[in-house]
Every structure is written in structure tokens, then in C-alpha cells.
Design a protein around this nucleic acid. Structure first.
Lengths: 298, 298
DNA sequence: ATGCTGCCATTAGTAAAACAATGCCTTGGT
DNA sequence: ACCAAGGCATTGTTTTACTAATGGCAGCAT
């Protein structure tokens, strides 16, 4: 069944011959002799069981079978040429562009990046931040997005397995003490971030604390700024475990209660499909997934 | 520049090796020896200027470059396999299905079909009639459509270059005489066909005969039936030169006036793109376009 | 008609793969 | 620890494929 595919070099000769309708010119293009082409076509016709060319006294003409066959063959070979050039073309050492939102970069990616730089010191990197929704600029080789991993036209790899986690400074402004239980949150400023489906309202709801007004507080458009404000003692932010780990370890933030609520959304590596077309992209993808799997539960 | 493409046989070995991650198994699949695969990969890596596999003590692993390269290579080769099978697979002598509307079949295609049958006595044919609009049944290999030749997903080849031409029987019912000029059409029954943009209203308008009521008369859903009724003396039908030629020659119809109005629409051969995948289809396409070019003006 | 030219097929010789056999390295089992 | 097995690289030999040269055929120009 798989045996049906003839030697691909023969198909290349066929494609060139069909284009020129002339074995001699096809041979020149492929840096071979006319005799070689002639034999290859003969072999191809023998294997396929029917003629591809009509031999005219002055040149060639495609048979019906040849005419039916050539478009698919041409497309495939053309694609091989394009792909080969994309992957191994001249600009081998171009910089890799990664679109990643600010908070993920600062609190997850940046601390690990030294490892990638060490493994691939020759790969130039460029980071551009998207706040939330991807603009349709196709300039990034890969993106890191927050969501459920379902984006048409992209293959996605999950990077984080988060719980929602309230965080605040160990020392709050106004001489307040950090809340000892969720009930006490009504006495604190809630730091909200727009753009996440699962915010304070969701978290309080999950724990049954309906008495706290989840709409009071201050709103930010990035978890980055909200966490910074929390660290400065302005209130309590609702972070994600993967993003808070760093600041919790350093003591700039504390997690006043241990009520793990899993998130339905998480961070994903999103790669445009059919565009795995540069070794640097693959290197970064591979490294990033590897890093993520170190944190994977179980 | 074109020289960038390595020998395609090497790529085939690469594809199989990447799939098995094992030269020995890849060699078995391609009916070659492990040594040959090893050498081909080595050659490929040399030409591309970088390694595709990491040689591990126990098997292989793709490098970043290999991982970036393999999807395009695999797709192309897969496509070649599919196309080869489609064109030269087992059911080599299946019947060719042509969707064509009734009037075009009877008055244009049928008279010429003997020529095709003579050239290709082995090709089985099946005709299905569409009245006007194509149903989305993809069962036809090719279609003949009336329109402007712009259908997404189809490549089209123009088959006719028509004028609108009023026709009627030389002997009308009710002892009427055929009209001598368009003015006299108001005394005759107009035979309309729905589905054509350019009907009696258009024709009379183009010639400035606004005094004739273009809405009176009898309506049909196929020019076929309208022409038959005209031949039986029931009135005057608005035909197309390419479709009336036959009956005009036989004397069953006459064209009472010589006022050529070119049509914006015409008959086209419509072939689904990327589906030129059978020699029989190509044979029919080729023959049909040849036939049409015989009638082409200039 | 005649000779010239372009183009494909064929044949014999040579260069290039594929084969067969062997070596080396690592892993996994006893 | 040691032996067996799996797997890739390497070497010399054989087969395959390419080359170079020649012949044949049909247009085209003189």
C-alpha cells in the first residue's frame, strides 16, 4: 500500500519535464543529462502503469494521466522548496519574537530565562507585551496567552496549573493587620484585575463568602500592577500560584489563607499552526514546555 | 536559489526516520538497509548545514532544526502519496460524472459527444442534470454552469460566446406569421425562462422597444422546454446562438430578426480546484475546451 | 529535395548509491 | 559484573543510476 509511492527523485524529474515540456531543458535545470531524465520518466511510467508524456517529434505533451498528476506533484515539491528555504535559508540567526503579557514575563518567565540563554546563547530574543487579547499582528513567532487553550489556528501547550491565591504585603498601610480569614476581607481594599474571568467575585463565591462586597476596591488592567500595589501594602490582590511564587519566596508578599481554588483558565504557549518553521522557534518551544513540566502537578 | 532543494529521496528517508526515530525501522519500511539511511541522513545534514538528529546511544532524537523541518516535509510527502493513489489507484476505470443542464446537453453537448466517445471509448460517462443552481453535492467530477465564470472553489473555462437570439417556428399556431420586426412581438406569445438574468425584458430594453410588454406570455424553468414550445409554434423564445444553432440548421426553428445582443453570461466548464485528480477528468476537460475553442469568435 | 537542427531513445562505460558485514557503544537483565 | 541485545557508523563490494556518445526521426529552411 505504501509501496505505491515512486522514488521521489523521479517525481522531481517529472515535475521539471512537465514544466519545460522538454527533457533537455529539464535536465539542465536539475544539473543532469537528458538521458537520465529520459530513463527516470520511463521508470516512473513503468511503475505507475501508464504513460505521462506523449513523445512528439518536436517536444513533449502531457497525457491525460500526466495532466491529472502534475498539479499535486508540483504543489508538493514547491512546498518542500519553500519549507527548506524557510528553515535553512540564509537568515539562520534571526531573533525570535515572543509575545507575552507583562505579569507572566516578570514573575514566571524572567526568572527561568537564564537557563534558556545558557543553553542557546546564540539565539536573539525579542519580547513584546500584549496586555490581554492578541492583536492580529502576526509578527510574533510564539505567544503566551491566558485562557483555556482553544484558539483556532494555534496549537497550544499548557504552561501553568494554577490555584487562585489572595496575596498581600506582610505589613499593610494604615497599620492594618493582614486578614486572618476571608470574612475579614471586607475590612481590606480588594485589588481587582480586569480581563480575567475568575476574579474576586468568583473566588468569594466558591468559598461561600457572600457577605463580602466583591465590587469594592481598586481596579487594574494588569495583574502585574495589582501585585505591585499589594506588595506596597495597598490591599489584597487575587493572584495565581505560579505568578506569586517568586514574591512569596522573597517575603514581599504573603498568602494570608490557604484556600486553594483551581482555575479553569491558565497560561498557554500558543504557536501558529503550520509555522513551526524555524529551529529557534522549536528550541524555545521545547525549552518552555520542559520548564512548565517541572511545575506540573503529579 | 533553486539549488537549495536536496535530493527528494533523502527527504523521504528523513521523514521515515523521524517517524520511527530509528534508522533500522525506517530502512525496513523503505526496503533499504540501515547503512543507506545513515548515509542519506548524513548527506542531508551536510547539505543543510546542520544536524537533524541527535544520535543517542539508544535511538534517535530530533534536533530543533529537525523538529522545525519535519512537519513541512511530512505534509508534502503525504500529499504526494495521496495524489499518486488518487490518480493511479486501483479504480482506474471509474465512470466520469458530469453535471450539465438539460438544454446545454441536448443542443450543444450531445451533438458533439460522438467525437469524445470515439476518442475515449473506454471512459464511462454519467450525466446528471442540474436545473440552475448547483446543489452542494460534490458527486460530479465536472460541471457545466451558466454564469460569469466566477465561482469560488472552482476553476472555470468559458465554453460559449453567445448572442441573444429570438427564435420561433417557421409556422406558428393560429395562422400567425412570424414577426418581421421586434415591434410586432406584442402580437406574439413571449416564451420566458426563469433563471437567466438576461431575458426578454433585457433584450427589448437593449433595442429600445419599450412599447412591448415584456411580462406577458408563458414562463418555463428551462430553456429546453421553452425552445421545444417555440418549435411547436406556441410563441417566440429568447435563445442563445450556441443553443439554437442545431434547430436553426434543421429548420425546426427560425430566427426572425438579426439583432445580435451579446450576453454577459455564458456557459462555463467548472472544475473543483485541487481535484484534477483523474486522467478521465483531464481527458474530458481537454476535449471539451478543444470543442469550445472551435466556436470561439476571432 | 536535401541538408540542418532540435529532441528523444539507446547503448556502453563510469560514478554513485545501496548492500553486507563488522565494530563500537550503551542499556538492561541475570 | 558480565553478557546479550539493540542501534548507529564505517568499510569494502556489488548493484544501480548517471554520463557521454551515437542513432533515428520529424520539421524547417534553403
Amino acid at each position: 500500500m505504501k509501496k505505491r509511492l515512486p522514488p521521489l527523485n523521479w517525481l522531481r524529474s517529472f515535475e521539471a519535464s512537465a514544466r519545460h515540456l522538454n527533457f533537455t531543458q529539464a535536465a539542465a535545470e536539475l544539473h543532469m543529462t537528458q538521458a537520465a531524465i529520459s530513463q527516470q520518466i520511463k521508470g516512473l511510467e513503468a511503475q505507475l502503469g501508464c504513460a505521462l508524456f506523449k513523445r512528439l517529434p518536436r517536444g513533449l505533451e502531457l497525457t491525460d494521466a500526466g495532466r491529472a498528476y502534475i498539479p499535486g506533484v508540483r504543489e508538493s515539491i514547491e512546498k518542500l522548496a519553500v519549507v527548506t528555504d524557510e528553515v535553512f535559508g540564509k537568515e539562520r540567526s534571526r531573533t525570535l519574537t515572543v509575545r507575552v503579557n507583562l505579569v507572566f514575563f516578570n514573575h514566571w518567565l524572567a526568572p527561568r530565562l537564564a537557563s534558556f540563554r545558557a543553553q542557546h546563547p546564540d539565539i536573539g530574543l525579542r519580547f513584546t507585551s500584549n496586555i490581554w487579547v492578541a492583536e492580529p499582528d502576526k509578527e510574533a513567532d510564539v505567544e503566551i496567552r491566558y485562557g483555556k487553550g482553544l484558539w483556532p489556528g494555534f496549537t497550544s501547550n499548557r504552561l501553568t496549573w494554577d490555584d487562585l491565591i489572595p496575596v498581600c504585603s506582610p505589613i499593610l498601610l494604615n497599620e492594618q493587620q493582614p486578614p486572618a480569614s476571608p470574612d475579614e476581607l471586607s475590612d481590606h481594599t480588594l485589588l481587582h484585575v480586569i480581563g480575567y474571568e475568575e476574579g474576586w467575585g468568583f473566588w468569594l463565591n466558591q468559598l461561600g463568602h457572600h457577605e463580602v462586597d466583591s465590587s469594592q476596591g481598586v481596579h487594574f488592567d494588569s495583574l502585574m500592577t495589582a501585585m505591585e500595589m499589594a506588595a506596597l501594602g495597598h490591599g489584597v490582590a487575587l493572584s495565581r500560584t505560579s505568578l506569586a511564587a517568586n514574591m512569596l519566596a522573597s517575603g514581599r508578599l504573603i498568602a494570608p489563607f490557604d484556600k486553594p481554588i483551581a482555575t479553569a483558565e491558565s497560561f498557554f504557549l500558543a504557536t501558529p499552526v503550520n509555522q513551526h518553521s524555524h529551529p529557534h522557534v522549536e528550541a524555545f518551544r521545547y525549552w518552555l514546555i520542559e520548564q512548565a513540566e517541572m511545575d506540573m502537578p503529579r
